[in-house]
């Protein structure tokens, strides 16, 4: 008995020591994390993030479908979920960088565009205006179609508002990205972009619901105009030659 008790008393310090080390380690890590948070908040938003972290951003909405045509091989079927995930991440990375952290824009575009497409896309000046702050994403959605796990189209819509150097802004953005998979990764090689002011931003931004109503009605009127335009085009017929 005596022997076993003495053995237990010998083991105890080891066990206690391990707990102590873990506890100290945890405290140090927590302290470091707190310090890091303090750095960000003390300097305002972090250099890469222009949105107020407390602003609730709209959730991403994704629709992904497979292009019609040839059946997928076993290998392609197995790879499909991975590619779907990669493309979703790609859309998130690009457009969150464009609208919420412009300083990361270059990095995000470099990772996801071919070199020449990136340069050209950047030159269009898409994203938030200069000096943007307190950006609020009101809508972000992506419609992705994947062909044979090797080619994809991404139709991405973002509606954002915020403050900028020249005053409040609100913008509606639609990009169509054409991507092909090469060497295991997806690269955007072509795009179409359409970004325009969404509506006039009132000085006070209290009534978001009212703004939503406005945006809905403006979208409706746009749809109406498009319908008229389409019918005009149809009437015109034309052979183009």
């Amino acid at each position: 008995m005596t022997t076993s008790t003495s053995q237990e008393s010998k083991r105890k310090p080891w066990w206690l020591l391990a707990v102590a080390i873990l506890a100290v380690g945890g405290l140090v890590a927590a302290a470091m994390a707190m310090t890091a948070d303090d750095d960000e908040s003390s300097g305002g938003p972090s250099p890469g993030i222009i949105g107020d972290p407390e602003i609730r951003q709209a959730e991403w909405r994704f629709t992904v479908r497979r292009a019609p045509g040839k059946k997928l091989s076993k290998k392609q079927r197995a790879s499909f979920p991975t590619q779907r995930k990669k493309l979703k991440t790609m859309a998130q990375d690009i457009f969150d960088a464009l609208f919420l952290s412009p300083q990361n824009q270059g990095k995000a575009l470099r990772a996801n565009f071919t070199s020449s497409a990136r340069k050209s896309y950047q030159r269009t000046g898409v994203g938030v205006p200069r000096g943007a702050d307190d950006v609020r994403i009101r809508r972000r959605s992506a419609w992705i179609v994947i062909d044979q796990t090797a080619r994809a189209t991404l139709s991405v819509k973002v509606v954002a508002q915020g403050e900028a150097d020249k005053g409040p802004f609100a913008t509606t953005h639609h990009s169509v990205l054409y991507a092909a998979r090469e060497k295991g990764g997806w690269k955007v090689f072509g795009y179409e972009v359409d970004q325009k002011p969404f509506k006039k931003q009132k000085a006070s931004n209290k009534d978001d619901e009212a703004n939503d109503e406005q945006s809905k009605s403006s979208e409706k009127s746009k749809k109406g105009k498009n319908k008229k335009k389409r019918s005009r085009d149809k009437n015109r017929g034309g052979d183009g030659s």
Partner: peptide
């Protein structure tokens, strides 16, 4: 308001 409207599209195909 946001900057001027941006509309366009390009393809930069390697081939």
């Amino acid at each position: 308001m946001a900057g001027a409207p941006v509309t366009g599209g390009r393809v930069h195909a390697d081939h």
